[in-house]
Simulated assay, not measured.
Amino acid sequence: MDLLVNVDVDDIEAAIRFYGGAFGLTVGRRFGVDGVEMVGSSAPIYLLVKAEGTPATGTIAQRRTYERHWTPVHLDFVVQEIESAVEKSVSLGARLEEPIATHRWGRLALMADPFGNGYCFVQFLGRGYDEIEK
């Protein structure tokens, strides 16, 4: 099974600049004016234009918003050096939401992109998640 990642945004050109600059991704393909495939990660990331205020689905009343919002699903970007990744991302409009935390398995930075989506930078230390395996 393949994994595809889709991220709703309200400005495709701003999203290309952010995801390209912050994560080193490049445009693979464009799908008209409302979609772009970003490549350079272990899975392609599709940026999809969805207007603010439009229904999230036909089954709930929730509307799209590009203010900071929470969802239990988010992206983790594994990096070699977390401080420089955070610095670059912040310079492109992201927000560091909590100070970088160090755990037995590695270091973690909780972030938000300019479109309200949460993501994390992870820098593994030692054996990574295997450090906490039972």
Rank of each mutant, 00 (worst) to 15 (best):
E97W: 09
I100H: 06
T102A: 11
L4Y: 15
R107P: 00
N6W: 14
N6S: 14
A22W: 04
Y66K: 00
L108F: 05
N6V: 09
P99E: 04
R127A: 13
F121W: 08
F31N: 10
L108V: 10
R107F: 00
Y119D: 00
E67C: 05
G24Q: 05
G53L: 00
G116K: 07
V5C: 12
M38Y: 01
Y46N: 15
H74R: 03
L3Y: 06
Y129W: 09
G24N: 03
E98W: 08
E52C: 08
V122C: 03
T59Q: 15
S41K: 07
I12G: 01
V86R: 00
A22Y: 02
L48S: 13
D34R: 14
R64N: 07
Q62H: 13
F124E: 13
D10M: 07
I45D: 01
R64H: 14
A22R: 02
D76F: 05
A56S: 04
Q62E: 15
L110C: 08
G40I: 03
R95A: 11
I82C: 11
T57H: 07
G28S: 05
F77A: 07
Y129Q: 00
F18A: 04
V73R: 01
A15Q: 02
A101S: 10
G28W: 00
S42T: 15
R64G: 04
D130E: 15
H74M: 07
Y66P: 01
Y66M: 02
N117A: 10
I60D: 12
D11M: 00
G58F: 09
A56C: 11
E13S: 10
S41M: 14
L108Q: 10
R17E: 13
G21M: 12
R29S: 15
V5K: 01
Q80I: 11
G20I: 05
T26C: 14
A94V: 11
I16W: 03
Q80A: 14
R104S: 13
Q80N: 14
L125G: 11
A22K: 00
F115I: 05
V39Y: 01
L48T: 13
L48N: 10
V49F: 15
G20P: 02
I12M: 11
D11P: 00
G106E: 01
G93F: 04
F18N: 01
G58Q: 08
A101H: 11
Q80K: 13
A14F: 05
S42F: 07
H69T: 13
R17I: 15
R29F: 01
F115R: 01
G35Q: 12
D2S: 15
E37F: 02
